[in-house]
Design a protein around this nucleic acid. Structure first.
Length: 561
RNA sequence: GCGCCCGUAGCUCAGCUGGAUAGAGCAUCGGCCUUCUAAGCCGGUGGUCGCAGGUUCGAGUCCUGCCGGGCGCGCCA
C-alpha cells in the first residue's frame, strides 16, 4: 500500500525533473509517513517541504505541481495538500481491505520477508558463567536475544543462537572452592570459608549431588560426582556441568534454546588463543611493560592500552574474547549481534580494537552490540538486591514460577533496551487486567470464542478461509483495523533493522485495543449473514496477526482463557 | 575526574530515519453485563517532554553546556 503511494510520487517527481521544475541531477526519495490524525488521510508525504529549496519555489506550490502530475490509481481515493505543504493520501476503502485476503492466504508467513536472503547471522546472548542460577538480568537478555533472533528469522536471515561461557579462570576456581567448602561441611559464616566464595544455597545442592555420586548431563557432556572431597578438579567439572544443566532447565522453562554452546576453554585447547597472540605480535601492536604484554588498543579508539598477558603468564579475559570473535568471523557470520548487559559496555571498544589489530579484513564496526540496561527487582515496594556473590537475588526461575512464562517474557522484552527496567514482582504476578499480556491474549481468545459460537450455530469457518464480500465492511473501526494489520510487515522489518524488539509488544497492545473496541461496539454474530461473514474474515485476519506477533515474542496465543 | 545510557502525565512506559493540536496502561472520578468471555468497553481529570541556549520552514526527536539518576573505568570476568 505504502509502496503504491511511493511509486506514484516517484513518477510525479520524475515528471517534474524532466520538465525542469526540479533539478535532474539530484535524486528525490519521497518518505511516506503514517498519519497520526485521520483528517490527514492514511499516508502523508513531506517531500514538497524537503525539496522546496531545490525547486526554488514555496512548498505548497511544489506540492500542487506534484499532485497534478500524480498518475491515476484506483487505490487512492483523494489527495490533499495541507499545512505547510504536506501531501495527504486518502486510500480507497476497497484497497484497505485487500490486506485481509493477503493475511489469510499467507497465514503464519504474513509479515515475514526475504530481505535477509539467507545471510548467516549470529546472535550471542545470555552467555552466563556457570557459577549460579540465571538472574533476572540474564532473563532480560534471554527475552531480548530470542525475540531478536525470531525477528531476524522473520526477515529471511539464517540465525544461529549462541551461548558462550567461561568454564575456566578465577571465578570457576572460586566456584570449585565454594563447593568443596560445602562438601567439607563449612558454611559461609565459618572463618575458613573462601573470601569471595559463592554463598547461595545452590552451592549446597551441588555439594550434596557431588557426594551422592549423581550424574548430570549438559552440553553433550556427562559428569558423575566422584564424592571425593579432595579432588578439586573433579569438583570443578561436576559443578560446572551441574550449574549448566540448571541454567538449561531455566532456559527451557523460558522457551529459549540455543544452537551452539561455546566453551571458552575450547579456545585454549584448539590453540586459538595462542594464534591470536602471535598474530597480534606479528602485526606490531604489542609491547612489554612491567613484565606484562600489552595491546595498543589506543590505536583503535580505546582510551588506554590493555594488558593481554599478565605477569604470571596467564591471559586477561579480553584476549580469548578477541580469539572468540575471530572464530565467529571465520565461521562466516557477516553479521554478529552480541546481546549483553550494559555493565559490559567497556568490552565493546576493546574487542573491536583487538579485531582490527588482527588485520583480518574485519569491518570496523563489527560486531554489533545490543546492550540492555540493568533490571531492578522490587517486592512489596522494596528493592531486591541482585548480588551473585551474596547469593540472594531473583532468578529467572523465580519469575517464571511466580508470574508465568508468558508474562515474564513479555515484560522483559516490552521495553526499550536502553532504559532501566523496574520489575515489580507484585504487579507482574497479579493476574488481573493490569497485565498487558493478558489483554493481548484475551483478544486472541475472544476471536476463537466467537468461532466456537459460530460453530455451535452450524457454521464452520476455516482459520484461513476468506468468506464474504469485504466491501460490506464499511465501518471506520474496520478500516482502522485493516490499516493496523497492514502495518505489521513494516513493523517486523524495522524492529529487526533497528534491533528493537519492544515495538512488537506495543504494536500488539494497540491492535488488541482496537479489536476490543470494535468487538464491544459492533456485534459480529448477526442475522445479516453476508455482513457477518465479512466481519468474521476480518476477525480471522486479526487473530492471525496477533498469533504471528505473539509467536515472535515467544508468548503463547491461547484459544481459551 | 573520564566514558556509555537514561530523564515525557501521580506511577510504569510508547513516540520509526526531525514534521502538522505530545500518546497508552495503571491510579483517580463517572457510566456500560437478560445481548458473541466485564481478563472487556465508553467518558472525565491529569504534561513548562529535566533546565538553558543553538541548528531550521518546523525540535520530545539533532548540536553544545548545565542539573539529576544508572552503569563502567583492575595484570577480575
Amino acid at each position: 500500500m505504502k509502496e503504491t503511494v511511493s511509486e506514484l510520487l516517484q513518477s510525479a517527481l520524475a515528471t517534474l525533473q524532466s520538465e525542469g521544475t526540479l533539478p535532474a541531477d539530484q535524486t528525490f526519495t519521497p518518505q511516506i509517513g503514517n498519519t497520526k490524525d485521520k483528517s490527514h488521510g492514511d499516508y502523508a508525504c513531506n517531500i514538497a517541504l524537503v525539496a522546496s529549496k531545490a525547486a526554488g519555489c514555496p512548498p505548497r506550490k511544489l506540492a500542487e505541481a506534484l499532485v497534478e502530475r500524480l498518475p491515476e490509481s484506483s487505490a487512492v481515493e483523494k489527495v490533499e495538500i495541507a499545512g505547510p505543504g504536506f501531501i495527504n493520501f486518502f486510500m480507497s476503502t476497497a484497497s484497505a481491505f485487500e490486506v485481509v485476503n493477503t493475511i489469510l492466504d499467507e497465514a503464519g508467513e504474513y509479515g515475514r520477508n526475504k530481505n535477509g536472503k539467507g545471510e548467516k547471522v549470529q546472535v550471542e546472548f545470555v552467555s552466563a558463567n556457570p557459577t549460579g542460577p540465571l538472574h533476572v538480568g540474564h532473563g532480560r537478555g534471554a527475552a531480548i536475544g530470542d525475540c531478536l533472533s525470531r525477528l531476524l528469522e522473520a526477515n529471511g536471515y539464517d540465525v544461529t543462537r549462541e551461548f558462550y561461557y567461561n568454564d575456566a579462570g578465577a571465578q570457576i576456581n572460586n566456584l570449585a572452592l565454594s563447593v568443596q567448602s560445602r562438601v567439607k561441611g563449612l558454611t559461609p559464616e565459618d572463618e575458613n570459608w573462601p573470601a569471595d566464595g559463592y554463598r547461595g544455597a545452590y552451592i549446597t545442592d551441588v555439594a550434596n549431588a557431588y557426594m551422592a555420586g549423581e550424574t548430570v548431563t549438559a552440553d553433550d557432556r556427562e559428569v558423575t560426582g566422584k564424592a571425593d572431597p579432595e579432588n578439586q578438579q573433579a569438583i570443578q567439572e561436576f559443578a560446572v556441568a551441574y550449574l549448566r544443566r540448571e541454567q538449561d532447565l531455566d532456559l527451557k522453562a523460558f522457551g529459549v534454546t540455543f544452537d551452539v554452546y561455546f566453551l571458552e576453554s575450547s579456545l585454549y585447547e584448539d590453540g586459538k588463543v595462542e594464534q591470536t597472540v602471535e598474530r597480534l605480535q606479528q602485526n606490531g601492536y604489542t609491547y612489554e611493560y612491567e613484565g606484562a604484554i600489552w595491546l595498543k588498543t589506543t590505536e583503535f579508539g580505546d582510551d588506554k592500552d590493555r594488558v593481554m598477558r599478565k605477569k604470571d603468564g596467564g591471559y586477561t579475559y579480553f584476549l580469548p574474547d578477541v580469539a572468540y570473535h575471530l572464530d565467529k568471523w571465520q565461521r562466516g557470520f557477516t553479521t554478529v549481534i552480541n546481546e549483553q548487559g550494559a555493565d559490559h559496555h567497556s568490552t565493546v571498544t576493546r574487542v573491536r580494537a583487538g579485531l582490527q589489530a588482527l588485520k583480518a579484513g574485519i569491518p570496523e564496526g563489527w560486531p554489533d552490540y545490543v546492550l540492555h540496561q540493568m533490571v531492578m527487582v522490587t517486592r512489596s515496594g522494596q528493592e531486591v538486591k541482585i548480588s551473585k556473590r551474596a547469593g540472594s537475588y531473583v532468578t529467572v526461575r523465580d519469575l517464571i514460577d511466580e508470574v508465568g512464562r508468558d508474562a515474564t517474557r513479555f515484560f522483559l522484552a516490552a521495553r526499550r533496551v536502553d532504559s532501566q527496567l523496574t520489575f515489580d514482582i507484585d504487579l507482574a504476578r497479579s493476574q488481573t487486567n493490569e497485565n498487558p499480556v493478558y489483554y493481548i491474549q484475551y483478544a486472541h481468545a475472544r476471536i476463537c470464542s466467537v468461532l466456537r459460537k459460530l460453530k455451535e450455530e452450524g457454521v464452520e469457518r476455516g482459520l484461513n478461509e476468506c468468506v464474504g464480500d469485504l466491501a460490506l465492511l464499511t465501518l471506520d473501526e474496520e478500516k482502522d483495523l485493516a490499516n493496523q494489520l497492514a502495518k505489521f510487515p513494516e513493523l517486523i522489518e524495522s524492529s529487526a533493522r533497528l534491533r528493537e524488539p519492544h515495538h512488537l509488544a506495543h504494536y500488539l497492545r494497540d491492535l488488541a485495543g482496537q479489536f476490543h473496541t470494535y468487538y464491544n461496539a459492533h456485534k459480529v454474530l448477526i442475522e445479516n449473514t453476508a455482513v457477518r461473514d465479512a466481519r468474521i474474515s476480518l476477525y480471522l485476519a486479526i487473530r492471525q496477526v496477533i498469533a504471528n506477533g505473539l509467536d515472535l515474542l515467544g508468548v503463547s496465543a491461547p484459544e481459551e482463557m
